[in-house]
Amino acid sequence: MRHWTAGFLLAACLVSSLGAASQVSADAISDKIEKERKMLERLKDQIEEKRKQADEAGKKRDSLLQGLQTLDERLVQVRHANQDVSRKIRKKDQEIETINQQITKLQGSIRQRRDAILARLRVQYMEGRSGYWKTLLASDSYGDFQRRLQYLSAVSERDYALLETFKSDVNDMEEAERQRESARAGMRVYKQSTEKQLHEMSSVKKEKKVYLTKITQEKESSERALQELEKSAVRIDSLLRELEQRRRAALARPPVAGTQHRGVKGMLPWPVDGSVISYFGRQKHPTFNTYVQRKGIEIRASEGSLIHAVMQGTVVYADWLKGYGLVIILDHANGFFSLYAHASKILTTVGAQVTANQAIGETGDTGMTKENTLYFELREGTEAVDPMQWLTKR
C-alpha cells in the first residue's frame, strides 16, 4: 500500500510537470506569433508608406507642366475678371459724365428760371397788391377790359408754368445727384475689386516665377520639364500630321471657293508688333540653360497686344497645351499651318473662318515663359519652316 501511494504521487508530479512545461511552450509560441504579426503589420505600413511616396513622386514627376498650367489658368481667370471690371469702370465713368452733363444743363435751366421768377416778384412788389385790379380798372371800354383780362390770365399762367418748371428742374436735379452718388458708390466698389484682383494677379505671377525658378534650378525638375515640353511638341506634330492627312484627302474633292494662295516669301504680315528674342533652329532656351531645336520664333510684345492671323484660314485648335499655354492653330487650306502660343486670351473658336490680319487672340505669359511673348510657328504641311523667311522684312 505504501509502495502504491508513493508511485501515485510520483506519477502525479510527472503529469503536473509535463502540464506546466506544455503551458510554457504554448505561451512562448503565442508570443512569437504575436511578435511576427506585429512585425508583419509594421512591414505592411512601411510598404504602404513607400507606395504613397512613390505615387506622390509620380504625381510630382507628371505634374510639372500641369502645375504651371494651373497657375496660368488662375492668372488668366483673374486677368479676365480684372478686364471685365475695368470695362464696368469705363461704363460707370461714361454714366457719371452723362449725369454731370445733365446736372450742368439743369443748373443752367434752374438759374434762368430763378432769375425770371425773381424778376416777376420784383414787378409784383413794385405794383403792390392792387396792381392786378389797377390794370383792369384802367380799361377804356369793355373790349379793352377783355383784352387786359386775357393778358393778365396769360401772365398768370406763364408765371404758374414757370414755377412748375422750376420745381420740376429742381426735382430732376436732386434725382440726378442721387444717381451720380449711386454711380460713384458703384465705382468705389469696382475700384476696390480691381485692387484686390491686381493684388491676386501679382501674387500668382510671383508664385509662377518661384515655380519656374525651382524647375530651372533643380536639375531633375529641369530635365523632366524639358521631357514634358518635348511630349507637347510631339503632340503638336501628331495633330498637324492628322490635319495634313485630312487636307490631302480633301484635295480629291472640288476646290473650295476662296482657297488661299500660297503667298510670297517675305510678304506675310507679322502676327504681333514686337521684337524677336528667339529664332528658328538651334537656339538657347530662354528658360532652361540648354540648347534646343526650335521650330518657330518668339516675339516679345506688350501684354494684351492683339495677335493677328498671318493668312486667311480656319481655326483648328484653340485651347490649353502644356508648356505652351493658350494655343491657336490655323489651317490655311494651301498646305500651310500657323501656330500661336503663350496667349492670355483667345478671341476665336474652333471651326471659325478668319481673314488675314484678323485679331484671333491677345499676347500673354502663359506656358513656359517668364515674360509677355508670342511663340509663332509656320508649317508647310508638317514641316516647320523659318517664319523669318516668310514674314515681311522689317
Results as ranks from 00 to 15, higher is better:
Lys208Asn: 11
Lys209Leu: 00
Lys209Met: 04
Lys209Thr: 02
Tyr211Ala: 08
Tyr211Asp: 03
Tyr211Glu: 01
Leu212Arg: 00
Leu212Asn: 00
Thr213Glu: 10
Thr213Ala: 07
Thr213Gly: 15
Lys214Phe: 01
Lys214Ser: 13
Lys214Thr: 12
Lys214His: 08
Ile215Ala: 00
Ile215Leu: 08
Thr216Glu: 11
Thr216Asp: 05
Thr216Ile: 08
Thr216His: 05
Thr216Asn: 03
Gln217Phe: 00
Gln217Trp: 08
Glu218Trp: 01
Lys219Phe: 07
Glu220Gly: 06
Glu220Pro: 07
Glu220Lys: 05
Ser221Val: 09
Ser221Trp: 10
Ser221Pro: 05
Ser222Cys: 00
Ser222Arg: 09
Ser222Trp: 04
Ser222Leu: 01
Ser222Tyr: 01
Glu223Lys: 01
Glu223Asn: 07
Glu223Cys: 03
Arg224Trp: 02
Ala225Ser: 05
Ala225Gln: 05
Leu226Gln: 09
Leu226Ala: 02
Leu226Asp: 00
Gln227Tyr: 02
Gln227Phe: 03
Gln227Leu: 10
Gln227Ile: 06
Glu228Thr: 03
Glu228Lys: 01
Glu228Tyr: 01
Glu228Gln: 15
Glu228Asn: 01
Lys231Met: 13
Lys231Ser: 13
Lys231His: 01
Ser232Tyr: 02
Ser232Leu: 06
Ala233Pro: 04
Ala233Trp: 02
Ala233Val: 04
Ala233Tyr: 00
Ala233Asn: 13
Val234Leu: 14
Val234Gly: 11
Val234Ala: 15
Val234Cys: 09
Val234Met: 15
Arg235Ser: 14
Ile236Ser: 06
Ile236Ala: 03
Ile236Arg: 04
Ile236Pro: 04
Ile236Trp: 04
Asp237Met: 07
Ser238Tyr: 08
Ser238Gln: 11
Leu239Glu: 05
Leu239Ser: 03
Leu239Ile: 06
Leu240Ala: 06
Leu240Val: 10
Leu240Asn: 01
Leu240Trp: 00
Arg241Cys: 08
Arg241Val: 03
Arg241Tyr: 05
Arg241Ala: 15
Arg241Met: 12
Glu242Tyr: 11
Glu242Trp: 06
Glu242Ile: 01
Glu242Ser: 15
Leu243Cys: 06
Leu243Lys: 07
Leu243Phe: 02
Leu243Ile: 00
Leu243His: 04
Leu243Val: 06
Leu243Arg: 14
Leu243Asp: 07
Glu244Phe: 15
Gln245Asn: 12
Arg246Ala: 13
Arg246Phe: 10
Arg247His: 09
Arg247Thr: 03
Arg247Phe: 10
Arg248Phe: 13
Arg248Asn: 14
Arg248Ile: 12
Arg248Ser: 12
Ala249Gly: 12
Ala249Ser: 12
Ala250Arg: 12
Ala250Asp: 12
Ala250Met: 14
Ala250Ile: 08
Ala250Ser: 14
Leu251Ile: 07
Leu251Arg: 11
Leu251Thr: 12
